[in-house]
Design a protein around this nucleic acid. Sequence first.
DNA 1: TGAGTACAGTACCTGCGGTACAGTTTTCCG
DNA 2: CGGAAAACTGTACCGCAGGTACTGTACTCA
Lengths: 208, 208
Amino acid sequence: MTVQVLSKGEQTRGRIMDIAQDAVLHKGFASTSIEEIIAEAGITKSGFFYHFKDKNDLAKALLQRYTDEEWMVFDALFKQADELSDDPLHSFLIFLKLFADLMGDLPNGHPGCLIASYVYQDFLFSQDVRALTTEGHQIWRKRFRERLDKIAARYPARIEVSLDDMADMLSAVADGGIILSKSLHDPSLLPRQIMQYRAYVKLVFLGA
Amino acid sequence: MTVQVLSKGEQTRGRIMDIAQDAVLHKGFASTSIEEIIAEAGITKSGFFYHFKDKNDLAKALLQRYTDEEWMVFDALFKQADELSDDPLHSFLIFLKLFADLMGDLPNGHPGCLIASYVYQDFLFSQDVRALTTEGHQIWRKRFRERLDKIAARYPARIEVSLDDMADMLSAVADGGIILSKSLHDPSLLPRQIMQYRAYVKLVFLGA
DNA sequence: TGAGTACAGTACCTGCGGTACAGTTTTCCG
DNA sequence: CGGAAAACTGTACCGCAGGTACTGTACTCA
């Protein structure tokens, strides 16, 4: 039912990015060669460099698209949670459960977070790519923080706590959970860690 | 006062690894070239390959040394904490504070976790390197879990919680905290995240 | 129908990982 | 002190990957 609105060039560009993203998340950016990408895409080197001026340009495009898609996913989850409860705390708790379920439902575990993977390969990329990872995490902080502000207004926190730190903690637990999931070959570890964070939020605002 | 027990070969090998580890943590393993390592070490390519049969061999040696050193650091912190309190919970809380302080005291922020950085560059390395990262995280789980078991025996948990998940959460928060610290250029973020985890532990076993 | 778009083809340069192997100095041990 | 092993240096070379440069061409759409 999806209508054809993409030009042929945009289609090819998208196919290159799909192949590249899959490879990058599985073995890292540096060890993903352009040659293997074009081989799988069925194009030539010229074709690749027609769409991306260099490898760094591809990295940037991948990250940009990835963050855009992540926000859409989160928006959808937030919206779904808001429909299930008017209360800010319970809506956030529902969101966390939905988030955990989503992370657990992926067939072979979560493929990884592109942002996190880029952070560890920092100087590969130019300053503007670094800026993108920073911006990405800042936006997460801001959006989670907004939710926590509304919660704290209605449910006074049981302990002294920085809401910025609490907001960041979800990003940290998610990124760290992905690493642990991959390292220990346990796809269920990531959703369980998100549920741990959920338990923390519950304890802070509701108590035991 | 340190006595000279290292042969010249061991010294050079160590110098190569020091230079390499610094570079790897700052820009990733793949984009750290052997040529830049030997340039800084003041040796030739032949010299490098005398000590390491290939780049993967270097990666393995780095990881092995890194995990060994980490355990020594943690042992020292645990010992210090145990001397300050006999109570398992308070000792663990002290340990977490010491850990957070240590992570914050590094001049330019924590350089990063080698294990985490390797996880995102998976297929670069052979199966035995993968095994090392897995083993590393498993040992952390076991050691933290032991502490939590002793705590739970004296302080019944206020909520239903998996102690394995709680043990893993410290690794996750630390790994994720490093990523966020680097991404947001805020060295104080990592220790603050560890303190968040500490607050969680406190809430679970002591309440508000 | 002609001007872009979206590539293919070819050729070539560079840097890096890695090999091979011969030669040289340094260290250590009996 | 001498000799063997350890710890390298020097040189030459290979293959692969990223990247450049430029020409040619099929398709597409106004």
